[in-house]
Design a protein around this nucleic acid. Structure first.
Lengths: 236, 236
DNA sequence: CGCCCTTTTGAAGAAAATCAAGGGCAGTGG
DNA sequence: CCACTGCCCTTGATTTTCTTCAAAAGGGCG
């Protein structure tokens, strides 16, 4: 059994009964540790298992012809990943451990089986996928304005950290380098640096050595028109 | 009953049996006609029905604070839409009829019910959603290079048109204005115009009055590194 | 023909990439 | 304990890309 409060909180939000949640929790999850900055899944792999991040941050990315990388999402503790494992399609992207990660895996067949008997798990997986997609849309939507894109990403990560109790007095772990952020937003590290300095000068953020602080969340929310509802599963 | 070859082809690809396909086809779909350039779904709506585009093109978009629009996807005949209808989350975006559209709707509860008895439908919906997501990732991935983004979008639309038999000698309907394309790619109409001229001068495309021609698909594919596999559902 | 919408063109300015180099900080090893 | 090293952040100067603003040209349709 695995104990992931974020994970079961999510299922609860998605409408699962306590029985269903514990049924899922008691499935034969296998935990595994991934070294920092190593791939945990690679492009073109045949997906054979779903997993949940128990600890650490991971990133979903694709490589371009010229070798440059684009992040298309980040995974925090409690996040489902590789959700489509049960669908049998090959991967069109890779997953990288940004920090050292602890993950819990579940064989695809078991996911497939369990979703048939547990509509709530099926719904939870859908809900997780829809959030993933909503995040992608936001990234696209904000990509026309560097300052908005940057602060919106910080709001996203702040909110997601907060949901799992990882924000303390406005401060949270942000294990992304400015180069990583650039690869998520489609800008160069140099430009990210200058934009973040601007945000800092405006008093919206503080960031140094792997940690960020947002002392006035409503201020930065207003600045980039951040509305956190897209990060929550729908009600049923 | 509705007769949508693209739709049933898709279910077949996703592994549905003929019985399941016809079971779905005989559900009480309601067809509806939408006027060109009218919303068929609007942001914040409570989704009550899934639909399939039978005819015409539609676009998924969000509006920004300043009123500017960003397309985050296009729907062609045969495409599922509003797939998350059964999940109960509110919409974070709107759907616009780009041309006049004919759609077939199915109440959300029925979708929910049917997916329980028909794993193939459930998988088809998953497959459709995964393709949607893969498209979003591609849009992000290509957004760093205007010429690549533009030709990649044209390749996407060419391929999807081809799948439904709407390409004849390299020519297909492209009911998007350059302003629309700009709103999909995150660039101004003026810039789209200049980029498309560049593509034309390179002999990669021809486009005028609602139609586009790609006479050498392999040439433009090579130019933007287009790989169509992400547009097909996984095998089961 | 005249109107509206879309495409095209030009010129100017803003935003971001690129190139290059310096500085800080943490961990490593002598 | 201190020097060294590697990684990340920062800065400046320059060039490229894209937007903005404005206006003209084309094309379809009543």
């Amino acid at each position: 059994m695995i104990a992931v409060s974020a994970f079961s909180d999510f299922m609860k939000l998605a409408g699962a009964s306590p029985q269903e949640i514990s049924a899922v929790a008691y499935l034969p999850w296998k935990t595994r540790r991934i070294v920092k900055r190593k791939n945990m899944r690679s492009v073109n792999e045949r997906p054979t298992s779903l997993f949940v991040v128990l600890n650490g941050w991971a990133g979903r990315y694709s490589l371009r012809q010229n070798g440059s990388r684009r992040f298309t999402g980040f995974m925090l503790p409690g996040d489902f990943c590789w959700i489509h494992a049960a669908t049998g399609s090959d991967m069109d992207h890779s997953i990288l451990a940004i920090t050292e990660c602890l993950i819990a895996e579940l064989p695809a067949q078991l996911v497939d089986l369990t979703t048939r008997s547990s509509p709530a798990l099926a719904k939870a997986l859908w809900a997780a996928k829809l959030i993933e997609e909503a995040v992608l849309r936001k990234w696209l939507l904000n990509s026309d304005d560097a300052e908005r894109a940057t602060s919106h990403l910080l709001c996203e990560l702040y909110t997601r950290s907060d949901k799992i109790g990882q924000v303390h007095q406005g401060t949270f772990d942000l294990p992304l380098t400015q180069a990583d952020i650039g690869e998520a937003l489609g800008m160069t590290a140099v430009h990210v640096n200058r934009i973040m300095q601007r945000l800092r000068r405006k008093g919206l953020i503080e960031a140094r050595s792997g940690r960020a602080t947002i002392s006035d969340f409503s201020a930065i929310s207003a600045h980039c028109r951040f509305d956190p509802t897209y990060l929550s599963p729908g009600k049923y």
